[in-house]
Amino acid sequence: MIKVVFLRDKKSLEIEADNVSEVFSKLSILKEQYVAIKNGKIVCEDESLSKGDTLELFTVASGG
């Protein structure tokens, strides 16, 4: 299982996924709207994921 953390909402959940794109599609969110950070490092959408990884999602839109 991968731990996914939405940084702005401070919400987290666990999910089965082999890569970042799969997380996006399983959660029905768009890659344009989040920067993915795996175990503290910014990663691309095709980055692979393994059991125990933490994937933080940083919301792109901000301000007004």
Binding site: L7, R8, E32, Q33, V35, I37, I42, F58, T59, V60, A61, S62, G63, G64
Partner: peptide, 22 residues
């Protein structure tokens, strides 16, 4: 916008990422 966020994070700039309540 996404490239700007990556640049700001990558360069450890101090910025606030909250959304305006309006």
């Amino acid at each position: 916008e996404k490239e700007i966020v990556i640049f700001a994070l990558n360069n450890k700039l101090i910025f606030d990422s909250s959304e305006c309540p309006y």
